[in-house]
Write a protein that binds this DNA or RNA. Structure first.
Lengths: 403, 403
DNA sequence: ACTAATTTGTAAATAGCCCTGACGAAATGG
DNA sequence: CCATTTCGTCAGGGCTATTTACAAATTAGT
């Protein structure tokens, strides 16, 4: 279909096999050449030449001999390099900025964050503040022997992929902001993606293993209620990149009108603003009083833990409405699991009873219901890992970076 | 992920390139070797050797010299063979059986159908009747110089793919029926799939071109209301193969209880049985009186065309409820287009007004709304084309048939 | 009609990639 | 100490696509 990406030349085969070697080590852990060959189904000879290239490129490192106790000559253990390229991830939240660096082994090597009231702000100063964090993290990892292979930015809005171009971010008040011309350049290829998408990918890559065993619907609430559909290890983005707008699935035929133009949208009953209003709070003031990623949900979770009846009632209702929307989504997608991520992870203990009840009532066999352990950290980690994954996908950078 | 299917050997590269040549001719029309080379990005030399193999295998045929009028030596035109392998498709409906044969060029070369009351019947006799149709069609195309490369059966139920094993087909009353041991064998690899899935694939392969330009949700109603999600040229099947159950998406919070265990399911308001009841008919009797694929919908369409007020009112209501369910699906999937297929295609003229109104009201920018031109023929054609596609995908059958 | 230009298809030589088979190196176990 | 096992590498070979070159067949221009 896409003639741009050719897959028929020998170089492409080589590229695939280089990536296969790296993923064999990344997924299966450090191993000798012979063991890698067994894992990916190539001969030892072929793996040897592949490994030579990867060692020269600084992506793999030899970690001494592995004495297994079994007879036979021990192999030299290969591991992903912890001094090679690393991925930089950045997050532009409504009220905070964050940056982190992840090495090929998946370890977070540096991170930085600041509170920042970005709602309705000018892009320029925000990006300048973010750039400062990026250079701070960048110099830190450079001192540790790593070199950034790219920077990916998580944005709460719609992003034109590969171009690092924010089409619109309602909660920031941004429209048509091009990140490439700003102060973020200079750390390798600069890319951007939607925050919910990156959170879901983080869950797929480093989160709960069930996400790797089948299709998954990842639900994440920050300001709105978003979700991401993971099929076959990939994100379903839809025509315009809008896929996953769970918050605007109708749950009441003649419900409250919504800013989206519809009525009875899930967000009107289970969204953060709806929850805050239901317990007598002004959403705008609550954001100011409880900033940061997951600030309001942490506050609500605290009150729920204290037994606050209003909050408990609101969360019960939200669980029920979430259950109705997820019933429809499950019938459509038949996912292996539903993952509650982002702010929902913190509130899960009080949402789950009514949510599971509603799902159990309406669905014969409900999918697994999993609470993300990444929580509000997902988008940031996902952004950094997206960069390292792109390195593993095309180790010698022979092709153009399709980030 | 799946280590079973290796993609790194040279034979795989060859296989891909052979398929690329065939699809270049299939999608872009007959062309010379040089033009094919331009289309798929290989050199003329490489294409020549690929074409040699495909000619020898009887998949391509030379169709004389092509005088284009432009300067230069004219090339010998290559076309898909119309005397090579063909695909057999079969359909087990609730009240009919049908078989057709399609050649590599996509032309229907033979077909046969009979009415057959299959609801609640024993599988044995039904399969025997179907087998008779298959052999009839098979001998007809064999006489025309074609040879069947496989048989795919469209079943109104859940199928374990690749094994031709019907897990359950509620409308037939079948459970755990293995087609391979029955009388259908002997026409090449025997496979089966869900009828809605094959209908959607037919739309993708030979239907409206918009289906090939992005993700699509294909809605098809026969007895229930099913749908299929086409992403990236592939079917989203879900964890158990249940994906696309649009009929059980809740559209009323406290609506009618449904056999699925839920309540307020779309099917209770826009399903065939609901429509028949709404105009005062008994669904079971209506099936007997108006058999065949799309029999009831044709009858309802007839009454609607005559201006029958009850029918028009029922269809208006169904359009509205369908609009609510599709609003949710659109928010989740952001499809490029919604395709009304199967029985809905016939009823589209009377569903569309309220359906488009509801979508327009609830969605800022609704996806394209397309009426399938294949209609009730979709599943049967999709089944036959699935076989020919599998031939094109792996022309020399070096790999195992992953149908 | 004749030539120049252009395009097509094929042949020979070349480079890249992986496989087969063989071998030395380095461990275990009796 | 020696047989056994496993690891990594080397040499040779097969397959695939590319490069380069060339003959064949057509159009356009004189």
């Amino acid at each position: 279909m896409t003639t741009t990406r050719r897959l028929h030349t020998q170089q492409d085969m080589r590229r695939r096999n280089l990536a296969a070697v790296l993923y064999a080590v990344a997924d299966g852990g450090p191993a000798s050449r012979a063991r890698v060959a067994d894992r990916i189904g190539l001969t030892r000879t072929a793996v040897s030449t592949l490994v030579d290239d990867l060692l020269a490129a600084g992506l793999l490192a030899e970690a001494g001999l592995g004495h297994s106790g079994a007879p036979g000559r021990p192999g030299t253990v290969l591991a992903l390099s912890d001094r090679g390229p690393c991925g930089l991830g950045a997050e532009i939240g409504v009220d905070h900025l964050a940056v982190c660096a992840v090495d090929l082994r998946g370890r977070v090597r540096a991170r930085a964050a600041v509170d920042s009231a970005n709602r309705g702000s000018e892009p320029g100063p925000v990006l300048a503040r973010l750039a400062e964090l990026v250079t701070r993290v960048g110099t830190e990892v450079t001192a540790a022997g790593l070199h950034p292979a790219g920077l990916r930015v998580a944005v709460p809005g719609l992003v034109s992929r590969g171009h690092a171009h924010v089409v619109q971010a309602p909660n920031l008040g941004w429209r048509d902001v091009d990140l490439t011309t700003g102060p973020l350049a200079g750390h390798g290829p600069l890319t951007a993606d939607n925050e919910a998408n990156l959170g879901a990918l983080a869950e797929l890559w480093i989160g709960d293993p069930v996400c790797r065993t089948g299709d998954v619907l990842h639900i994440s609430a920050e300001i709105g209620i978003g979700s991401a559909i993971l099929t076959d290890g990939q994100l379903l983005r839809g025509n315009r990149g809008f896929a996953g707008e769970l918050g605007h699935v109708p749950v009441r035929r003649r419900g409250e009108p919504c800013a989206c133009g519809g009525r009875g949208c899930l967000e009107q009953y289970a969204g953060e603003a709806a929850l805050l209003r239901a317990v007598g709070l002004d959403p705008a003031r609550a954001v100011a009083e409880h900033p940061g990623p997951g600030g309001r949900s942490a506050y609500l979770a605290g009150r729920a833990a204290d037994g606050d009846r209003d909050v408990l009632r609101a969360l019960r209702g939200a669980g029920t409405d979430l259950g109705i929307a997820l019933t429809g989504a499950t019938h459509l997608l038949d996912p292996h699991a539903l993952v509650l991520g982002g702010a929902l992870a913190v509130l899960a203990p009080w949402l789950l009873p009514t949510l599971t009840a509603e799902l159990g009532r309406r669905l014969g066999a409900a999918p697994l219901l999993v609470v993300s352990r990444l929580g509000a950290d997902g988008p940031l980690l996902g952004a950094a890992h997206a960069v390292t994954r792109s390195v593993l996908d095309d180790p010698l950078r022979t092709g153009d970076a399709r980030l």
